[in-house]
Simulated scan of single mutants.
Amino acid sequence: MFPDVPPDRHLRLAHASALLGVTPYLLEYHPADAIIAIAFTSTGALAGIASVDLPGPDADLVAMATRAKQSLENEPSADHVALIGYGTKAHVKPLMDVMRFLLDHSSRLHLVEALRFHDNTYWSYLCSDACCPPDGISFDPTCSPVAAQATILGMTTLPDAAAHVAQFAPVTGTPREQMREATRRVRDQARHMMTRGHDWRAELLDRVASCSQAVDLGQKLDDEQVAWLEMLTSSTLLRDLAATLAEPGEDDRVHLRMWSEVLRRVDPADAVAPALLTAIYALRSGNGPVAQIALNRALDTDPGNRTALQMRQVAKTGVTPAQIRSSQITPTALTEQAKRCPEDTWPVLPQESR
């Protein structure tokens, strides 16, 4: 996927060790058992990053490598690419060889580096023994100068992919019970509002504006704010409208943080809409790994959800943020639909228990 990197974050990568040092900060976790492909522009700016899990013994290596290559080539500004395989030689080399071959023989991208990293040691597939001895070169990415620079710039990383996924796990215990009570109160209010008519589209616009502003200021949403956002987006039309309300760039990332918080705090049974919105804003921000995590949450709740299944296929193609934005229905069209069919904006509420 291709991230909209904040313009004030500049890291100089003058050596293979610098590339190893910064990669966990680009992914937001320390990778393992994967090949990470990083694309750059001709000026050295980051153009995209893709992660490919190391294959099992019966995997189609050509298909896996082709998908990764296509995802990198989807970004028109990408000119160069570096590969880093995380794992043992036996696990990394088969897929690495196929990816290198495809990049060398059927890609407009120029391969500038191919590394393997394991047990704080790295090897380069593109240099001779003179620059890369058989035993490899020792390197601790957590102590590298570029890691320190990334930390100063406010970039963070987690120990592994599991910790990254855990950030999006549903809350439990007392927070879950408090959230259930808030959800019940908000739904009771909504039922009364439906009996006398209500402009649900305007309600969504107001709620999203106030909540995104709070998130942008670093504030935590209260339980009722979260419950309102979940309840309003139970309408498919309002969910689709909510997916268009951010401006490209930093605003996308604010909305990603907002919907991620909603996803984490709502009851898992109500997770589909917040998960889809998290995935959309992750794709709009170029964060493919988060999009996949969110789509998995949606499918955990509703395994046959067509929107989530379709989005997962789209995410695998490596679409760019600009392509995601251009494929969305415009807010104007959604607003016109809401005016024609106001009943389509009504929240979908569960029946009251007797």
Rank of each mutant, 00 (worst) to 15 (best):
V5N: 11
P6H: 06
D8N: 09
A14L: 07
A16C: 03
L19G: 02
L19E: 14
L27T: 08
Y29R: 06
I49G: 14
P55K: 02
M64D: 15
A68H: 05
K69Q: 15
N74I: 02
A78Q: 08
H80Y: 12
G87M: 01
P94Y: 00
M99I: 05
R108A: 13
H110N: 13
L111A: 01
E113P: 07
A114P: 10
R116P: 08
D140N: 11
V146Q: 05
A148W: 10
A161N: 12
A161C: 07
A163E: 12
H164F: 15
T172M: 10
T172R: 13
Q178M: 15
R185S: 13
H192R: 09
H192G: 10
D206W: 01
D206M: 06
V208L: 13
C211A: 14
A214M: 06
V215C: 04
D216M: 09
L221R: 00
D223V: 07
E224D: 15
Q225A: 07
V226F: 02
W228A: 00
L229S: 03
T236G: 13
D252N: 06
D270P: 10
A273C: 06
P274S: 03
P274V: 04
A275Y: 02
T278I: 05
A294T: 13
N296K: 08
A298Q: 07
L299P: 10
D300F: 03
D302F: 00
R306L: 09
L309S: 12
A315V: 12
V319N: 06
T320Y: 04
P321L: 00
Q323M: 11
Q323G: 07
Q323I: 05
I324K: 03
E336D: 14
C341R: 11
P342N: 04
E343P: 07
P347N: 05
V348T: 13
L349H: 01
Q351V: 08
E352C: 04
